[in-house]
Design a protein around this nucleic acid. Structure first.
Ligand SMILES: [Zn+2]
Ligand SMILES: [Zn+2]
Ligand SMILES: [Zn+2]
Ligand SMILES: [Zn+2]
Lengths: 132, 132
DNA sequence: ATCAATTGCGTTATGCTATAACGTGTGCGA
DNA sequence: TCGCACACGTTATAGCATAACGCAATTGAT
C-alpha cells in the first residue's frame, strides 16, 4: 500500500510515535497531544486506524500499544509476517522479519486450509542491555 | 509443570472453558458462572491466572480471550512455542506447535542476545469451513 | 452550479477488560 | 499457639476501545 498524505491528526499521532523511544498506548498518545487540541480517545484511535492501514504503524497486541514501523521502505509487509521482540524492562521493541518462519507457518496454515489475514508474533523478555 | 488439584473456582472456570466451543472472555465466563455464585471479575481472573500458570489454559492476546489447551499431555509447552489459528467467523481455534518455527525464532533471538520469556503467535483469518 | 457520496473531525456517552486494596477464613508447620 | 501462605469475597477504580450523533470540507458526476 502506498501511503497517502497524512491528515493533521494522523501526522500528530505519527510524530508522537516517531519521537517515542518505544511503544505507546492510545491514551498515552492522547495525553501527549492535549496541548495540540486532542480531547478524546477517538481522535487517537481514528488516526491510528489509518496509520495501521497504511502500514506505517504496528499494533502490539500483547501490550495494547502502538509503534512506528522500523522498516517502512521494505516490501516485506505486503507478503511476509512481522515479528517483535519486546523488552519488559526498558520497553524497547525490535521488529524483524524472517521468511523461513513465514513460509513454515504459511505452509502449515495451507495444510489446514486456513486462510490467514492478520498475524501476531510477539516475544516478550529482556533485551541484551537489560538481561544483565 | 505438574498440575495440582484445582480449587472449586478453578474447576468451575476450567469446566466452562472445556465445554465451550471456542475461546471465551473473562466476562463471558463470569456471566456463565453467576448461577454458581460468581459475582466479580476477580474471581474469574484469579482462577485464570492459576490455570495459565499450570499450562492447562492459554490466553489469546489478540482477542482478549482464553481457551483450554488442546494438547495438555504433551510436553511441548515446557520448551516450545505455541501458535494459534483463530477463525474470525466461527471463533474456532486451532492450536499447533512447530519445532522448526521455534528454533528459527529462538536462534534469531539468541543472535540478538534477547532473553525470551513469553511468546505470542496468533494468526487470524478464516478456517476451512468458513472460508467458502 | 448542484446534488450526493465520501471522508475527516469533534463530542458525549457507553461498554469492555483488568487490577488495586481491603478484609475473611482455613490449613499447616514451627 | 503463633505465624504464614493461600484461596476467597467485595468494593472500587484504572485502563482500553467503540457507538452514535452531528458538522464541515472535498470530490465527482449530473
Ligand atoms: Zn514494520
Ligand atoms: Zn531492555
Ligand atoms: Zn497448549
Ligand atoms: Zn470458522
Amino acid at each position: 500500500m502506498t501511503t497517502p498524505m497524512l491528515t493533521k491528526n494522523q501526522s500528530l499521532v505519527f510524530d508522537v510515535l516517531t519521537k517515542a523511544e518505544g511503544p505507546l498506548s492510545a491514551y498515552t498518545i492522547l495525553d501527549k497531544l492535549r496541548d495540540h487540541g486532542f480531547r478524546a480517545p477517538l481522535q487517537v484511535y481514528r488516526a491510528l486506524d489509518k496509520l495501521l492501514e497504511y502500514g506505517v504503524v504496528h499494533r502490539l497486541e500483547s501490550i495494547n500499544s502502538f509503534v512506528v514501523c522500523a522498516h517502512p521502505n521494505e516490501d516485506c509487509h505486503s507478503h511476509g509476517l512481522v515479528a517483535f521482540a519486546i523488552c519488559e524492562s526498558c520497553g524497547q521493541v525490535i521488529e524483524f522479519h524472517d521468511h523461513e518462519v513465514d513460509h513454515r507457518l504459511m505452509d502449515w496454515l495451507k495444510s489446514q486450509k486456513f486462510k490467514a489475514e492478520k498475524s501476531t508474533i510477539e516475544i516478550r523478555g529482556h533485551c541484551a542491555g537489560c538481561a544483565a
